[in-house]
Each structure stands twice: as C-alpha cells, then as structure tokens.
Design a protein around this nucleic acid. Structure first.
Lengths: 226, 226
DNA sequence: ATCTCATTTTACATAAATTTTACAAACTTA
DNA sequence: TAAGTTTGTAAAATTTATGTAAAATGAGAT
C-alpha cells in the first residue's frame, strides 16, 4: 500500500482529497501548513507528496525545494490554483515531479499519481538484489557479480542499472536518463550515456557487442530486458 | 474535461464565449491581450485556443505563430472579423488549425471546436498499444508485431503510425504529415512520405500493394483505417 | 604533490535510418 | 486516346545515431 502526504491549507479540499485517496487504497497523512508538512515529509516515510503551492507560512515552492534537498527521490505533485499566474515552469524548476491545476477532477489526479508512483517505483521493499543473465546486482551492498565473480560497478553505473531495471521492458529516453540519473542541471554530452551503456555491457553482458539485456532503441534510447 | 483558452479583447464577445463554452462543459480560461494570452498558452495546459486576430499589442497572427513554434500540437482556431480570402489564407499559413468568421453562431463554433478536438485527440491515456489487421504496435516499448512476429519499425515510422492512428479515419494531407511528424523547418521532398508509406505497408499490410489500412487518397494524402 | 579511479569529452568507424533520384504504373482531364 | 499528374516502387546517395576506444578532466586517497 502506498502512502501519500497531502499538504493543503484549504480544509474542504483536503478532506475531499483524503477521502478519495483513502477510498482508492492509499494510506493518507495530512498537514495544513508548510512547516508541519515539511517536517512530516522529512521525518516520516511516504511514497508521494501532494503539495499545494499557496500555503500560509512556508510556501509550496520552498517546501518542495527543501524536501528535494534531503529526499531527492520522494516524488512531489504540486497543486496550483488556476487563477494564479504561477507557471508550471517554476514549479518543475523547483524539483516537483508533476503539477496539476485546480480545479481538477479526481480521475485526473489519480492518473497522475499512478504515473508518478510508477515512474519512481523502487524495487519491491526488502528485495534489493536483482539478477539477469549471468549478472547479479546488490543495490544495497553495491556489489555486482558476473558469472559469480565480483565486478566493479561505479555508483553511477549502479544508478543507471537501478533506473533501467525499475522500468524493465520500457524504452528509456536518453534524455530521461540524463535528467533522472544525472540530476537536474547537469547536461553532459549525450555520448556520456552511451559510454556508460558500453561499459555496463562489457561488465554484465555475455557478448557485449550483442547485448541481450541492455538494448538500444535507435533514435530513442535504451531498454533493459531481463 | 477539455480546457480552452480564449484570447479576445472585446469583453462582451469574450463574456459570451466564456459563458457558452462553460455551459457546454469546457474548462475556460481567458485573456484580453496578446502578450498575456501567449504566456498563458505557453505555460499552462490547454486543449485548444480560440484566438482573435485583431488584438491590441501583439496581433493574433503573431501569437499563433509563436504558440505553434513551441507547442506545435496545441490546436488553434482563429476568430476573424473580415471574411476576406487573404485573412483565411494567412491565418492558416501561420499554423492555425481552423478559422471562423465573425459574426458566427455558437452552434457553428461548437461544431468546429469538436472537430478540432477530435482531430487532435490522442490515444486514450494509459493505452499505448494499438492493433489492426495482423499488426500490433506498442508505442511505449517501440515494438511492432506482424502476424505475431516482431518487425523492425524505425522511430519515425512509429511516429507516423501514431499520428495516423490518432486520426484514424481522417484523411491526412501529405503536408500535415510533413509539418507534424517532421516539424516545421524540415521539408524534405514529399516523396519521402510516400517512401515511408511504402515501407510501412510492406511491414504491416497483408498485401502491401493492396493496402487495407494505410490507404492513399489521390491528390491529398493518406488515411489510416483500422 | 602524485597516484588512482570515476567521469566526461573527443574522435573515428560502422550500422542504420533517411532522403533523393529515377522510372514505372495508375489515374485525370481534355 | 494522349498529355499531364500523382503515386508506387526500388535502389542509390546521404545523413545521422550509435559503438567503441582512447584521451582529457576531475576528485579523492595516500
């Protein structure tokens, strides 16, 4: 069951959201002001935060920025009032994963929540090793085995594999990889990605030049298949 | 619910439009001048823009051009006072999807809106595979099957199929295909399109020379029919 | 400071996609 | 039917993306 934290000062909207999300099977926790919400987000464990931009005290942008500073991987969807001139660019700039404009329908919100959760999904809790072909990766101990022999993967290589394995079967755009693995600002030449792919293939594929798991989709990006 | 942005400086027309469209169930946002309208169009999410040509400051043509430059797929219907041929032509030239001449009746406007929205409708959210005849396309995984065997489609071929399938049943002008799939600047010989069509038929039709799904409309372009 | 390793950039080769060209076939129109 | 278009088709020519290795850069550790 996924847990969601809602930070929203309008109690009628808050109640509506909570009821709907609870009904959908999410574990919901709420907060009506920025400071408290931030504290909860940082100290408790959530899978997603719904964050209103207009908040008394600490505003949504600031809360978002501070959450992301500490918990970069905690996904955040911003709720913005339609009449306000807030543009989505600044919202996403601040690190939010998505935004939705009020008034919004619950189905739309649910859809976005599913997308974000899916996108940021981690390996099932408790399991932090993954095997494919002759390779086994332990994402907790940062140990990689190939044909039962330890091979050295850098932390970025682990990050890439994690990202791809979490989305096994989906085509991953080069751009997404750069955004999500390398971070926001950082935009190295896209060839960097290719070189990592090359290196990972060398380390984890039986025949690096005929990869079975780390596959190119020309014109788009790469795909991991177990 | 579809959202519409109206950019119109005459406040009485604006009010009338807004009321009518709201009543019809659209989510309506408005703007009375070019600059602001442009900003909204670019930074917020709309399904359609109604754009007056005569605007103080930035005129409608210019707004249209700039919107299309960034959001090529955001449909725009121009509202024009003069019914001169010139206006129509330059209006469509600038990238508008349709135009309507004042004074117009609300039923006519509604009809055009429906047409434009229908035309630009994408595959239903969450569904990213599509089947017809013996072919199945997965637009997310970039996998194409024909008679249950995987065939290789390039990313551009996928893009063309996506474009046509989204408009299934509509005749698609060669020119549109070039504009929308290839982008603005890029204008290869139209024979390029034909060659892609040829290639797609070979890959996805039972009898490539007697296509059942990817159909030619002489003098216009092509049409996809499931 | 020097060494080591991870990371990024550069450069070039190669494979694949894309575009152009050319001509045949089909259709339109007068 | 003949002339003029438009489309089908294959193959050649060109461009672009990716594979790949090696050099340059940077950040820590000794």
């Amino acid at each position: 069951m996924n847990s969601i934290l809602i930070i929203e000062d309008d109690t009628s909207i808050l109640r509506g959201l909570k009821d709907n999300l609870t009904f959908e099977g999410y574990k919901v926790s709420t907060s009506t002001n920025g400071e408290e919400g931030l504290k909860k987000a940082l100290h408790e464990e959530f899978d997603l935060v719904l964050l209103d931009i207009m908040l008394p005290g600490l505003n949504g942008h600031e809360v978002c920025r501070r959450i992301k500073k500490v918990k970069n991987n905690l996904p955040i969807i911003m709720l913005t009032a339609r009449s306000s001139e807030i543009d989505k660019v600044t919202g996403l700039d601040v690190g939010a994963d998505d935004y939705i404009t009020k008034p919004f329908g619950i189905p739309e919100l649910l859809a976005r929540i599913r997308v974000v959760l899916r996108r940021t999904n981690k390996l099932p809790v408790g399991i932090d090793t993954y095997s494919f072909g002759n390779a086994t990766l332990d994402f907790k101990k940062y140990i990689a085995l190939f044909k039962n022999k330890e091979v050295n993967l850098s932390s970025k290589e682990f990050a890439i594999m994690k990202f791809m394995i979490d989305r096994a079967g989906d085509v991953i755009h080069r751009y997404d990889l750069l955004q999500k693995v390398w971070g926001y600002e950082r935009v190295p030449t896209t060839r960097t990605v290719d070189n990592y792919i090359l290196s990972l293939r060398k380390k984890l594929e039986d025949e690096p030049s005929k990869p079975k798991h780390i596959i190119s989709i020309r014109g788009v990006g790469y795909k991991f298949e177990s």
